[in-house]
């Protein structure tokens, strides 16, 4: 009954990171984060070193989830783009495909118009990358030979809690 684990391989990470790094430059962004709709960080790029990405990912996903439910209440399917304007920094959030969230942080070195334009282009590339990722996961389903977890022993689990 449970959803299968969501798996990301090196190749997926590289492909997605390349798109995101290009977007940082094209949009003059401070930082860009990709998060899945369950609140897990997928990749990050830009100059925002040291921000609490775990919190960021969880809050962004919750924000998108809450706004999505609001959309349904007023008769929309979803609100695919969210924009939060601050005094210095702004947040531009877009849904990519059905499962991912693209977060762009930018300041006065960029503009909403530029970010919008570049995000639009990058979204298509990202959607394609996520499709490829899903295909790879289908082709190589977790099995005893390629999943490190099939071999977990009760002892391994106990060891986690020994500290």
């Amino acid at each position: 009954m449970r959803d299968l684990p969501f798996v990301m391989y090196d190749e997926d990470q590289r492909q997605i990171l390349a798109i995101v790094e290009r977007l940082v430059r094209d949009a003059n962004a401070k930082g860009i984060f990709i998060v899945d709709r369950n609140g897990q960080l997928i990749v990050e790029a830009g100059e925002m070193h040291g921000v609490d990405t775990t919190s960021l990912a969880s809050l962004a996903a919750s924000c998108v989830a809450a706004t999505g439910s609001l959309a349904q209440i007023v008769g929309e399917e979803d609100f695919p783009v969210h924009f939060h304007q601050g005094r210095r920094d702004n947040l531009h959030i877009t849904l990519v495909g059905t499962s991912f969230i693209l977060i762009v942080v930018f300041d006065e070195r960029s503009s909403l118009g530029l970010v919008r334009l570049r995000v639009k282009k990058a979204s298509a590339a990202l959607a394609k990358a996520f499709e490829d990722m899903a295909k790879r996961a289908e082709r190589a389903p977790a099995s005893p030979t390629n999943s490190p977890f099939s071999e977990i022993t009760d002892e391994d689990i106990d060891n986690l809690f020994s500290t």
Partner: peptide, 15 residues
């Protein structure tokens, strides 16, 4: 849905 990241060798679960 747990998330297994082979790239950063992490596994995340939600409780």
């Amino acid at each position: 849905m747990s998330f297994i990241n082979y790239s950063s060798r992490e596994i995340n679960c939600k409780i």
